[in-house]
């Protein structure tokens, strides 16, 4: 009897220890990013960091640390990805949630999850050997490694996220809404467009935001497939270098403890904040579409 109680209490404390460690380490990530990122601003002015498009930390004598060009690149690529992925993803989600038979749905859902499982380095590779050359040929460019290439690949990568979350939202629309619409003589398509999708609106937005988050944070794909040019992009046919790619390229060669080193953490902290805002926003919206039945 005594032994059982001892085990019970010991295990509780063991779990508590594990939980406390995990939580502290995970929260430590944020603390460390902020701590190291803030150090960068001892030598860089906030105005230069955010409003200069000139990033040249290793320039002899007068290094510059403006992230505007890479920030623009990140958003350009993400915007392109969303233009492609949102109609496709929401359309496919609508089909799976409301049109497809249960059997089709059960087969297609894991297949789409498989798309999410493809490592980003493989997607980047496809961008180099297939999508990039294809773009170059179609648009007559000398090099296909452009923002457009990145946008297409990121669209494919964010599709599973958008489809899964949006499908969940669309399926959660109560049947009574549909029945009411049908009983008024509306057909399936009208019901979908006028009743079901508006009812799932906030969940669909949450899905899009999460897909966007995935695209903003993606590293290897853009690193491999967008050409990595440090200039301000003028459009989708320019090569770009995103925030994530910059960290990936420069972290390997930067000396520990320099302003350059800390500036990469500042970029990382900014990325972290963006992803935090994206996730909180999505979670907040996704919570709203749950209908109480």
């Amino acid at each position: 009897m005594q032994k059982r109680h001892f085990i019970d209490i010991a295990i509780k404390w063991l779990f508590f220890g594990a939980a406390a460690t995990s939580v502290m380490v995970l929260l430590g990530i944020f603390g460390m990013l902020l701590f190291n990122g803030v150090k960068a601003f001892a030598h860089i002015s906030l105005a230069e960091f955010f409003f200069s498009s000139n990033w040249n930390p290793s320039a002899y004598g007068k290094p510059s640390y403006g992230i505007l060009a890479m920030l623009t690149s990140t958003f350009l690529v993400t915007l392109g990805a969303m233009l492609l992925a949102v109609p496709l993803g929401v359309g496919a989600a609508t089909y799976l949630a409301q049109v497809a038979t249960e059997k089709t749905r059960l087969i297609l859902k894991p297949v789409i999850e498989l798309l999410a499982a493809i490592p980003s380095v493989v997607v980047g590779f496809i961008g180099i050997v297939m999508v990039g050359p294809f773009i170059a040929r179609v648009f007559g460019l000398s090099n296909g490694l452009t923002a457009l290439n990145g946008a297409i690949l990121l669209a494919v990568m964010s599709l599973p996220t958008i489809i899964t979350v949006a499908e969940d939202a669309i399926r959660s629309v109560p049947n009574s809404f549909k029945e009411a619409s049908y009983s008024l003589g509306a057909n399936q398509w009208t019901t979908l467009i006028k009743v079901v999708l508006p009812a799932a609106y906030s969940g669909i937005i949450a899905a899009i935001i999460l897909g966007m988050g995935r695209a903003i944070g993606e590293t290897m794909t853009v690193l491999m497939a967008t050409g990595n040019a440090l200039a301000m992009p003028r459009g989708f046919f320019d090569p770009v270098r995103t925030m994530t790619a910059t960290i990936a390229i420069e972290l390997g060669e930067v000396p520990y403890g320099t302003t350059h080193y800390y500036s990469l953490f500042a970029v990382g902290a900014l990325l972290f904040l963006i992803s935090l805002v994206v996730n909180l926003l999505a979670e907040n919206l996704a919570g709203r579409y749950r209908y109480k039945l």
């Binding site: 995990s22 939580v23 995970l26 929260l27 430590g28 990530i29 460390m32 990013l33 190291n36 999460l210 988050g213 995935r214 903003i216 944070g217 993606e218 590293t219 994530t244 960290i247 990936a248 972290l251 990469l264 953490f265 990382g268 990325l271 972290f272 992803s275 935090l276 994206v278 996730n279 909180l280 979670e283």
Partner: peptide, 22 residues
Amino acid sequence: RASIRNLAGVPSIIYGLFGVAV
């Protein structure tokens, strides 16, 4: 719980930064 859910959505390169520093 909310922080942990959010950390699941943090870009992987951020973990790379943490790994290097820590």
